[in-house]
Amino acid sequence: MQQFIDAAPGIRLWTEQRGAADAAPLLLIMGAQASGVGWPDPLVDALAAHHRVIRYDHRDTGRSTWSFEERPYRIADLAEDVIAVLDGLGIDRAHIVGMSLGGMLAQMLLADHPDRLLSATLISTMALSTTPYTRPDGSTVPTDALPGIAPEVLELWARPVEDHGPAAEVERRIEHWRVLAGDQLPFDEGYFRAFEQQVIAHTGHHRAGTAHGRADSDGMLRTDQLAKNEVPALVVSAPAEPVFPPPHPQHLAQCVRGAELVEIPGMGHALPPAVHAPLATAILARTGAVTT
């Protein structure tokens, strides 16, 4: 079932629900410039066998309002959009799963709206905390000394995004996924081509958005609140991650009080078919352990 939610004056967000209406809600939060269909259908269906699964388009993605040029917003506003989606769908509390920027938004929700969450799963993201990382040997590493984004990713992101038509845009996105997916699993070019064609069909155009990279990111740190967290939380470690490489997930699990850590073998900063089943299993193990 598809539905539009009014999140703020002039802002409408596209949402889709799958699964039994009376099942525990599970809301999926995608990363920067990624629409809700960035969550692959097979993964969504696996989760929907146990949950009322909601995925939605951020502002300036998919079928939601593209408004940044006329009305710039903050990253914090994207976090509040999650609450607007829950309110619009009449959901008091939900499990949330966030990837990349979505994992940061999920941390902000853990800190600011813990009463609205049943659990949180954080994937391919970094800690919104200044707490140093403690290595297994007991030594510590300041957050600004943790590994940075891989050079090949930075080089790709530094290139200007030019419109050479839909076919060229699909090829650009495939190259992007090839780098983001890491080097531990075979890269399925055909899968990602079909995936991006689906994203473009859903959006209705092939233009690449840049709003989230330009949005005000001030005030995102939640060091103290995360250290006092009481919401059941899971951190997913992706060993081939080129954006937030290990030990970022280990650090995140230390910063979020009570968080568990699970590794998905071969996973990078992407969701190819090989990770769908193990990722669904990990998420469902976390949500299934929560009593409502």
Score class of each variant (00 low, 15 high):
Arg214Thr: 08
Ile200Met: 11
His269Cys: 05
Gln250Met: 09
Phe192Tyr: 15
Gly10Ser: 00
Arg93Glu: 06
Glu80Val: 12
Leu234Met: 04
Glu69Tyr: 11
Met220Pro: 12
Asp112His: 12
Ala270Thr: 08
Phe195Met: 04
Met1Gly: 11
Pro40Lys: 02
Glu169Arg: 11
Gln33Gly: 10
Leu47Asp: 02
Ala238Ile: 04
Gln3Cys: 12
Ala145Asn: 14
Ser67Gln: 15
Trp14Gln: 04
Leu185Met: 12
Gly38Cys: 12
Gly190Thr: 14
Asp41Ala: 11
Gln2Asn: 14
Asp81Thr: 00
Asp57Gly: 09
His276Ile: 00
Asp92Met: 15
Pro273Tyr: 08
Thr210Asn: 12
Arg59Val: 00
Arg18Thr: 09
Arg207Val: 15
Arg74Gln: 10
His212Asn: 06
Ala215Asn: 05
Val170Lys: 00
Phe68Leu: 03
Gln197Trp: 09
His251Ser: 03
Ser119Cys: 00
Leu43Val: 01
Arg12Asn: 07
Gly98His: 08
Glu155Ala: 15
His251Phe: 06
Asp87Met: 00
Ser217Ala: 13
Pro166Met: 01
Gln197Ile: 06
Pro249Met: 02
Pro151Trp: 10
Arg74Met: 05
Tyr56Asp: 01
Glu70Pro: 08
Thr203Asn: 07
Thr143Trp: 13
Gly90Thr: 01
Glu196Cys: 07
Tyr73Phe: 14
Arg193Met: 04
Thr131Asp: 11
Val236Asn: 05
Asp188Asn: 09
Met108Glu: 10
Gly219Lys: 00
Ser217Glu: 12
Pro136Gln: 02
Tyr73His: 01
Leu110Cys: 02
Gly102Ser: 06
Tyr191Ser: 06
Pro278Ala: 01
Gly10Cys: 01
Arg193Thr: 06
Ala21Ser: 10
Val85Glu: 00
Thr61Met: 04
Asp137Phe: 07
Arg173Pro: 08
Ser139Trp: 10
Thr223His: 04
Gly88Arg: 00
Asp6Phe: 12
Pro249Glu: 08
Leu156Asp: 10
Glu169Ile: 14
Phe195Ile: 01
Thr203Phe: 15
Glu69Pro: 10
Ala240Glu: 10
Ala84Asp: 02
Ser67Asp: 14
Asp216Cys: 01
His164Asp: 08
Asp92Glu: 15
Ile123Thr: 07
Thr143Arg: 13
Asp183His: 12
Thr223Gly: 04
His95Arg: 03
Ser124His: 10
Asp81Lys: 01
Val85His: 01
Ser119Trp: 03
Pro186Arg: 03
Phe68Ser: 02
Ala94Ser: 14
Pro278Ser: 00
Val37Trp: 10
Arg159Asp: 08
Phe192Gly: 03
